[in-house]
């Protein structure tokens, strides 16, 4: 395979990443609005903003600041989603983390402004990348850690297996994505991202493309889980069918059960 062919394959992978995220984002946004779940609305918007940023920059040439603004929106909304989903009434650590991510996001935006309007040096490039790592790592590792911690709680409970699987998938794929800024360290400064005539740049582009496409497919499958997969995961699980009690009938049943307990 020639470098140009590799480049085309990696561009296709990025295309799959962007389309998958957009589909997932729209799906979550619709679900969130329909079920009145603000956290799902926010994560839907987060994963719609990422493709908007990339399409705006790479197709409509709106620039790196445009792209970074939407990435910042995605990352901050993702942390808010994690906090609203896992950490309501659970102390202030989640708020501290959100503040840290907002500060790191501002730092990234500042670097992008300098790169466009100021004097950009290799030194500044590596400082930006050094700040990008904790930024990305905190956002997606926080989600991964939260999903994994919750999974540890639910795995021994009588809960639908497909839900437990969703926890696992969120934990695994967020963990993978939390490292997606590492290839940036090896990108030769001053070269075009994915330049097929620069083997290092092409490898960095390819590594990132593989990482992000794995994330997008795994993360989307977790949310838009196909019916056949749910059925397969639930095949040994006997779902509870509740009898539809009338209030009087239910209260009599409870009183009877309680009196039986008291007489024992």
């Amino acid at each position: 395979m020639t470098p140009e062919l590799f480049y085309i394959v990696f561009v296709i992978l990025f295309g799959i990443f962007i389309i998958t995220l957009a589909v997932m984002g729209i799906f979550l946004l619709i679900k969130g609005v329909r079920n009145k779940m603000i956290n799902i609305v926010l994560v839907g918007l987060a994963f719609i903003s990422l493709p908007i940023g990339f399409i705006g920059n790479f197709i409509f040439q709106l620039g790196s600041i445009f792209q970074e603004t939407f990435i910042v929106a995605c990352f901050i909304l993702t942390v808010i989603f994690t906090n609203l989903t896992f950490y309501k009434n659970r102390g202030s650590f989640s708020k501290i983390l959100l503040c840290t991510v907002i500060i790191l996001a501002c730092i990234q935006l500042w670097f992008f402004f300098i790169s466009v309007y100021g004097e950009w040096t290799y030194y500044l490039y590596y400082i930006r990348v050094a700040f990008d790592f904790p930024y990305t790592f905190i956002v997606f590792n926080w989600l991964s850690y939260s999903a994994y911690s919750a999974y540890k709680l639910v795995k021994s409970q009588n809960i639908d297996p497909w839900i437990k699987f969703r926890y696992k998938m969120l934990a695994i794929f967020s963990f993978i994505f939390s490292f997606h800024s590492i290839p940036e360290f090896f990108q030769p400064p001053g070269t075009v991202w994915g330049d097929p005539y620069n083997i290092v740049s092409l490898a960095v582009f390819g590594g990132t493309a593989i990482l992000v496409v794995v994330f997008s497919i795994g993360f989307s499958t977790a949310w838009i889980m196909p019916g056949w997969l749910k059925t397969r995961l639930n095949r040994n699980y006997h779902a509870i069918e509740d009898k539809d009690y009338q209030e009087k009938e239910l209260l009599e049943l409870i009183k009877k059960e309680l009196s039986q307990k008291r007489t024992l």
């Binding site: 979550l28 679900k31 079920n35 779940m37 956290n39 799902i40 989903t85 896992f86 309501k88 009434n89 659970r90 939260s146 999903a147 919750a150 709680l153 639910v154 809960i159 639908d160 839900i163 969703r166 926890y167 969120l170 949310w223």
Partner: peptide, 13 residues
């Protein structure tokens, strides 16, 4: 409820 709150979202979508 506080500990298992994520079930509201992960089981509700």
């Amino acid at each position: 409820l506080t500990e298992y709150q994520s079930l509201i979202t992960l089981g509700g979508v």
